[in-house]
Write a protein that binds this DNA or RNA. Structure first.
Length: 984
RNA sequence: GCCCGGGUGGCGGAAUUGGUAGACGCAGCAGACUCAAAAUCUGCCGUUCGCAAGAAUGUAUCGGUUCGAUUCCGAUCCCGGGCACCA
């Protein structure tokens, strides 16, 4: 009876499917455990070996928890709205729904092949109307809510309306500002449009005009996290700033709670830091400076405000301010420029406009211009020149800064560049060459702050400013509200109707608002989405934008709990039962996108009372990326001659001797002169490899040149390690059919070059899990992916090692069954030694599985199998528990053997073996004995021996005596059951 | 530039967090079985010296704490990831 993994796996997968073995019930009586994988975007390329890594880890953990008696929810679905499907539709005219459906089928087949325990009855697809009905519904919750700043939570917008109707909106202190503040009476007199505009400024999902990241190539806006280095994350197209009507999520309102929430969840430090940096909280002060304009460029009546408000995190440096900088985009620049500086300022503004976001980021040139105006330092009356420069961002703080060159690197460079005198307020901490941003210096030249430590001066300065009424404490965030609309087709339509410029939510009973079919997927007029091409749609005045990719993924974890509910996104009782995701597995690439959005949505749903927790994921594990290990072949340019790697190395890195040697060897192997004396490719080499009808001898001049070597990616699947399979290579592509090969000098192998790169089709370094499952079985594949190393670590894929894991499973099988005799398991009683192996293994596997150390757990199975093999142990008492231990890792082989052992129940629900310490207990132990920390010998010592006896035993030992040379040791150290150290 | 990780054999990686470094696997070498191959099994496998027993040395580099350091501290050098005019 051999290990027929293919038959076994097929059989059990079919059985589990008909038995609905993976069906999960909302059984409130059982303890629950929720394991979730970040669901995939179903791309056309299918799975490669990198994708299942996280799924295998979560699958093992789910199955383990199930054996431990938990009701485990481990669902899977598809993030099926998104750009690539639409791009594909644009190119081919195929409806995204069609291609998406096809891709999902491929994905599911591939996943099932690996034997995951997903309950497909709970599958969700974000592009399914039954699903996006609730995405739209949650959007309406966001639209119909505002963030209450006193309670720090979302509340229904109706509460706000009631407040406006009864109390209006008046400032707590000071004078009301027209346009911002109003009485209840005024509110009632506002037109509907005026009221709607005011409310829009508070809604959690709101529509507004703003600068957005516009990507012309994709024809849509992108959220900040979708833009990397000034180009789009997907496709790398240029991105420009554009002012457009857009929908936004008021995620900034939740900045503090998103930050605080990080303390309650188990994410890696790196992940927490990425989110913290993205939110970018800083505290400081806003300070008003009086502005003095000597010769205004504008007529007196248009002069406007005469105050400049800046934001700073270092109010303690107020006496070190040597100039002010205002962002060029700010309108107040017009008011600030003086008559004689007006031309220079205008010229600079033109220059700034001409520069793209990309240029600005790529070359950080120091540039700027003096406005002609001065600010007055409120404490010493000093006149401070006001400049404009692009290094100050309009969108952060007040768009204006006070520059302290001795303490800030950028200010320092600016001051140096424009030779602005620098005031030193930190004494010897400033060396005149470089700014020093320290907070530890004692202040000098700082008026009433003199002699104070900077850290302490901060408070003193803020208080003084508040007393004078010229400054206030202020917290700022780098994070901006998230752009929430896309001018695309393949996304959720907004359940919004526009009438006379007012956005009305669609009534709930009209959801879902179904995405209509379109004839063409191209953009509509004025940069609007494809939906604007549909007459029926525009006739109904429906919003023509669609929601971005992250809409559906922001709440999907809730839908899995109650996927077929048509009355609610999820029943409250069910949501309470399954509660938070106990374990969430996915890549780090979603750190500042998906994870932040989904945390925000959860908080909103919590605030509005729809669910009972405000963090979606209790623990997050980031699986590493599996990189591709690419292989290269080396072709002499213009020929079909491929040279093995060592020749390329000799040509590239070797000296003249190597060069001539390599050349001779190449010519000798080919049997004709391919490389001439002068290093040119011979006529023969060229003509031999071109078909006569395509090669014109007249072109000989053109072709006769010093040779170059082309480096070509070769499909890793036709390379064994580094050795190229020449037969397969010739068949791989028609153009290689006639290829000639120069082998290594032993003339047996063609060796390829190698490099670690991202796995991708174009680099021919992808490995399809289907092929490996076919060749070695799903169980081997699962265990091998885990064996590769810690789940969190990124590592290059190496197919070679899979043999070792496969050998192990075959050996494991042979503990139970024999080729000739069949099942060889006996009912004999286990020896103490065998029980020791078993219980040591139980302990190890359980600990390793709990702490996610699946690679060492697999090693543990291998060690146990080797040991039992050595002991020739084929006893049921030992093998049965071992079988249960391995079930989460290799469910198919476990199920088969479990059945062979005569069990009728399912191995998936068998009780997990219990570790019993008594079997591994020892009476004596071989102790390492070291002298002065150096290992000298070992001694067998009874565990219950008194310390004095052990000391005597150690001192009497002849090896120890030899090292002591008759001297008495200073002390003898006993390391808790581990070793004994004699200190001289 | 700033902030996180991390540097261990030919390779992937272990080391219960201060206690025999290199588990387990791959690759390699030698051998057994076989007409042969596959499969399987056995032994060796950081470096140096040695026939061997053994000894010395060794976890990026240098220094420190300790009876004892891959682990803790300081400095330096590399590699990976994130952020990048956020005042």
């Amino acid at each position: 009876m051999e290990y027929q993994f293919r038959d076994i796996e097929k059989k059990w997968q079919a059985k589990w499917k008909t038995d609905k073995a993976y069906q999960v019930r909302n059984d409130f009586s059982k303890p629950k455990f929720y394991v979730l994988d970040m669901f995939p975007y179903p791309s056309g390329a299918g799975l490669h070996v990198g994708h299942p890594l996280g799924y295998i880890a979560s699958d093992i953990y789910s199955r383990y928890k199930r054996l431990k008696g938990f009701n485990v929810l481990h669902p899977m679905g598809f993030d099926s709205f998104g750009l690539p499907a639409e791009q594909y539709a644009l190119d081919t005219g195929q409806h995204p729904a069609v291609t998406t459906k096809k891709n999902i089928e491929t994905f599911k087949a591939q996943l099932d092949n690996i034997g995951f325990c997903f309950d497909w009855e709970r599958e969700v697809q974000t592009s399914d109307p039954k699903y996006y009905k609730w995405t739209q519904w949650i959007f309406l919750q966001l639209f119909n809510s505002y963030f209450c700043n006193t309670e720090k939570k979302a509340r229904p917008i109706s509460d706000l309306i009631r407040k406006y109707e009864t109390k209006g909106a008046l400032p707590k202190t000071g004078e009301p500002v027209p346009g911002r503040h109003f009485t209840a009476e005024q509110w009632k007199n506002f037109s509907e449009k005026e009221q709607a505009d005011i409310l829009m400024k508070r809604r959690l999902a709101y529509c507004g005009y703003g600068e957005v990241n516009w990507c012309e190539a994709l024809g849509t806006v992108l959220a900040n996290d979708e833009v990397v280095n000034g180009v789009s994350e997907r496709g790398g197209h240029p991105v420009v700033k554009k002012t457009l009507r857009q929908w936004y999520l008021r995620i900034t309102a939740y900045a503090d709670r998103l930050l605080e929430g990080l303390d309650k969840v188990d994410f890696s430090d790196a992940m927490k830091e990425m989110q913290t940096n993205w939110i970018g909280k800083s505290s400081g002060a806003e300070i008003d400076f009086e502005v003095k304009k000597p010769a205004p460029a504008l007529p007196e009546e248009k002069k406007g405000a005469s105050k400049l408000r800046v934001y700073t995190t270092r109010p303690d440096t107020i006496f070190g301010v040597d100039f002010m900088v205002v962002a060029p985009e700010l309108e107040m620049v017009q008011e600030l420029k003086s008559a004689e500086q007006a031309a220079a300022v205008d010229e600079y503004l033109d220059y700034v406009k001409s520069r793209s976001e990309r240029e600005r980021m790529a070359e950080k040139k120091i540039s700027g211009v003096f406005t002609g105006a001065y600010a007055i330092n409120p404490f010493d009356g000093r006149e401070i020149p006001i400049w404009i420069s692009e290094y100050v961002l309009a969108g952060y703080g007040t768009g204006a800064i006070m520059a302290v060159p001795c303490g800030d690197e950028r200010d320092h460079k600016f001051a140096r560049h424009f030779t602005i005198p620098i005031t030193n307020i930190i004494g010897s901490h400033y060396n005149g060459e470089e700014a020093n941003p320290t907070k530890e210096a004692i202040l000098e030249n700082s008026g009433f702050l003199n002699g104070l430590l900077m850290k302490d001066a901060m408070e003193v300065a803020i208080r003084a400013m508040e007393e004078k009424g010229i400054g206030t404490r202020k917290v700022n965030y780098k994070m901006r509200d998230a752009a929430f609309s896309r001018q695309r087709y393949w996304g959720e339509p907004f359940p919004i109707v526009w009438k006379k410029g007012i956005a009305y939510p669609l009534p709930e009973d009209q959801l879902p608002l179904i995405l209509p079919d379109v004839e063409k997927y191209g953009p509509g007029p004025d940069g609007e989405g494809p939906l604007s091409n549909i007459k029926d749609w525009t006739d109904r005045s429906l919003e023509t934008n669609t929601m971005p990719g992250y809409a559906g993924s922001s709440w999907y974890f809730l839908r899995y709990m109650d996927p077929h509910n048509e009355k609610a996104f999820c029943d409250r009782k069910v949501a309470d039962y399954w509660n938070q995701v106990d374990l969430y597995i996915g890549g780090t690439e979603h750190a500042v996108g998906h994870l932040l959005y989904s945390r925000m949505w959860t908080k909103v749903l919590f605030d509005l009372g729809h669910i009972g927790y405000d963090e979606p994921y209790r623990k997050l594990v980031n699986q590493g990326m599996i990189q591709g290990s690419s292989r290269f072949v080396y072709r002499i340019s213009g020929t079909k001659i491929f040279i093995s790697k060592s020749f390329r190395d000799k040509f590239y890195e070797g000296g003249w001797d190597e060069y001539y040697q390599a050349k001779e060897e190449i010519n000798s192997q080919l049997g004709y002169v391919a490389i001439e004396k002068d290093g040119a490719i011979s006529y023969e080499a060229l003509s031999k490899n071109y078909r006569p009808n395509t090669f014109n001898p007249e072109h000989i001049q053109e072709f006769s040149r010093t040779f170059k070597i082309d480096e070509l990616h070769v499909d890793v699947n036709i390379v064994d390690g580094y050795t190229l399979s020449i037969d397969l290579f010739k068949k791989w592509k028609p153009e290689f059919e006639m290829a000639e090969f120069v082998l290594e000098e032993d003339r047996t192998k063609y060796i390829c070059g190698a490099e670690v790169e991202k796995m991708s089709k174009s680099k021919y370094n992808t490995v399809n899990p289907d092929d490996l499952v076919m060749k070695y079985g799903a169980d081997t594949f699962r265990m091998y992916e885990m064996f590769l190393g810690p789940v969190e670590m990124s590592k290059p894929w190496d197919t070679k090692g899979i043999e070792g894991v496969h050998r192990f499973l075959k050996k494991f099988w042979r503990l139970f069954a024999d080729e000739i005799k069949g099942l060889i398991v006996t009912d004999d009683a286990a020896t103490p030694e065998e029980l020791k192996v078993l219980h040591r293994t139980i302990k190890k596997i359980e600990e390793d599985t709990e702490r996610f150390s699946f690679n060492t757990a697999v090693s543990g199975f291998m060690i146990a199998t080797n040991e039992l093999n050595d002991l020739k142990c084929h006893k049921r008492a030992v093998l049965e528990p071992l079988l249960l231990l391995i079930t989460p890792y290799a469910p198919h082989i476990a199920a088969e053997l479990w059945a062979l052992l005569g069990h009728n129940d399912s191995v998936l629900d068998a009780p997990y073996p219990k570790f019993e310490a008594k079997y591994v207990a020892e009476t004596s132990k071989e102790y390492p004995i070291s002298v002065n920390g150096k290992l000298r010998t070992t001694l067998n010592i009874a565990l219950d021996a008194a310390q004095a006896d052990v000391e005597q035993l150690v001192l009497n030992n002849e090896v120890v005596q030899k090292w002591l040379e008759g001297k008495t040791p200073k002390k003898i150290i006993f390391v808790k059951g581990k070793m004994v150290n004699v200190v001289m």
